[in-house]
Design a binder for these strands. Structure first.
Lengths: 335, 335
DNA sequence: TACTGCGATCGAAGCGCTTCGATCGCCGGA
DNA sequence: TCCGGCGATCGAAGCGCTTCGATCGCAGTA
């Protein structure tokens, strides 16, 4: 292995000079710096991450805790991850992947053994057990989602309440009177996943405000689940003319099933989807949607973490305003 | 931070004894071990990962390089990742996520700075530039996919040639005479992605062998792309009665579009999908499929890496035999 | 001319761990 | 009784880096 001493010898300086040239923490004459850089290149030197971590108490690694559940939408998670890893590399950091399976202990392990400098947590629950661990370890952290008790932790997410409201309002303004929310899997609600409840409440509040008849139903993420969900919906609330779908996994099944039931979109049924933008075009009809800004949130989470590491950040809760884009799946109801 | 010396003091032994108790590399009396374990628990000791890496030249981290392309199927990638991270934790290792964007330099960086002990590479191309880096660094590595020149690197993948053959053969045996392959995005072929070509060749070989008229078409992963692909297909090869779909992203679009064109599955058109098992049920009809064993491959990749780290493994190429499951999307052609 | 201040560089300590080579009892065999 | 051998433990070196406090030479000032 090529060490800093090898570089120092090659460049005719001391190891500390090489270190300072690399970190820029002390001034180095231009000439020396160039000689060092040349040596580094010639020898193919890469600082040993462990040694660096030990000496500086900085690993340049961010930990990201992702859910492995199937009832959560996988592509959405992947988009977060992609955005986060890309953003992290922009700050010269790497991303370590943890799974929610490990629970609070996983977070403790990683933070306590200084494997990562900060932790980003996805799929946050209302009463989130990882919050107290993070807090007691005084570990820089960013939650994607908002627990009931964020304590002093930073949070970032789409403003799901506003999103739910926007979706319902859009249907109301088109003149729909009976609408429904096709929500995430029941398991998501049971788990108290923070975004699901917030969306639901926003949806209901807007429905009430606009005097709509509104029904909310969770939906298992499978074709059968969707079919059952629709059966139930039309039995309990016939004449429904507008659907808000907060469950990316069943979107295509929904369209297939509506078509099978001779319901045309948007003539017989309007649909507002809640999903990342790149999912609205993969169906026969371009979907009116409230965007889930996965890329922004992922990137923002990393930025917030980096700012905490730089010491220039107090805890903050950032809720991104929803953006609704009207496309071809919504229209006034036929009356 | 709680250090090994704190534990040693608390337990009334020397730091090295604690280390040996933890690693089991020398025998420690039961009594001492218990005292040490108690101290560890009481103090909440976690070994410092950097220090450990520095002293032992082992990080207990595996690097996984994933593609971020949209033209690759995202859920499939995610399933690999999930399987790999879970398997890695089973060996007390963590997973560091790299993206293909960083190219060979990313691999070099991680290996040379001893951030990870081994590298697992997804989305391997026929002439894979990362192979030589990996090899010259003498870094334990596992490729998911098989490049033209695997050199001494281990590879694991589904036997895509056999899979292509199995899919075509199944249609042949049902009596179909004109079939088609709806393949991945053209970009995937252009990039020389290893699995796409292997599947195609297997498909064509079997078609030839069974005297089928067979056409292969790449397909952009969008509704429009699929529609264009079908248009082209039916223009160039009308009377096609069987489809092999090696493009998970367009499965639901395909079913929707066939239905829109009054083609019933399987009465008018048989479909063999190539996809992970959990994707066959999300459509109106359960799909006959050749399984992509994402979980097995991901887990196997980790196991192979661990075996290399343990020093008990020479390079090997493991191709998993395809498993075709007949479901409801295939039937003899109407004639 | 003597001194101050500053930019550039060096040397050494130390981060927390692993590991190699002692050391120290203690037991069994001669 | 003495000694060899072995299990249990200790001490110290060292992994490769960062960083603090010197040192050194030189330009500018009094």
């Amino acid at each position: 292995m090529v060490t800093i001493s090898d570089v120092a010898r090659d460049a005719g300086v001391s190891p500390s000079t090489v270190s300072y040239a690399l970190s820029g923490k002390r001034s180095i004459s231009a000439e020396t710096r160039h000689r060092i850089e040349a040596s580094i290149r010639r020898l193919g030197y890469h600082p040993h991450a462990g040694a660096r971590a030990l000496a500086s108490s900085r690993t340049n690694v961010l930990a990201l805790v992702i859910p492995l559940r199937v009832d959560l939408n996988v592509p959405v998670v992947m988009q977060f991850v992609a955005a986060a890893v890309t953003a992290a590399r922009g700050y010269d950091h790497d991303l370590l992947l943890l799974t929610k399976d490990e629970g609070p202990e996983g977070v403790r392990r990683v933070a306590a053994s200084a494997i990562a400098d900060a932790v980003i947590v996805m799929d946050v629950e209302a009463s989130e057990p990882r919050v107290s661990v993070l807090q007691s370890l005084r570990c820089p952290a960013v939650l994607i989602g908002v627990p009931d008790q964020p304590r002093d932790l930073s949070c970032v997410d789409l403003d799901f309440a506003a999103a739910g409201s926007a979706a319902a309002t859009q249907l109301a303004e088109l003149g729909h009177r009976r609408i429904a929310l096709i929500g995430p899997s029941p398991a998501v609600y049971e788990r108290g996943t923070s975004y699901a409840g917030r969306f639901l409440r926003g949806f209901q509040a807007a429905a009430t405000e606009h005097n709509l008849t509104a029904r909310a139903q969770p939906c298992l993420p499978s074709y059968e689940g969707l079919r059952a969900c629709l059966d139930e919906l039309f039995r309990r609330q016939p004449e429904t003319t507008g659907l808000v779908v907060h469950n990316e996994a069943v979107l295509s099944a929904l369209l297939a099933e509506l078509s099978a039931r001779q319901l045309r979109v948007p003539a017989d049924m309007s649909i507002v989807a809640v999903c990342p933008d790149d999912m609205v075009e993969n169906h026969g009809v371009a979907l009116t949607s409230v965007a889930i800004p996965t890329a922004e949130v992922g990137q923002l989470a990393v930025e917030m973490a980096m700012r905490q590491l730089a010491g220039v950040a107090q805890p903050e809760i950032r809720l991104l305003s929803p953006r609704l884009t009207v496309r071809d799946s919504t229209a006034p109801p036929r009356s």
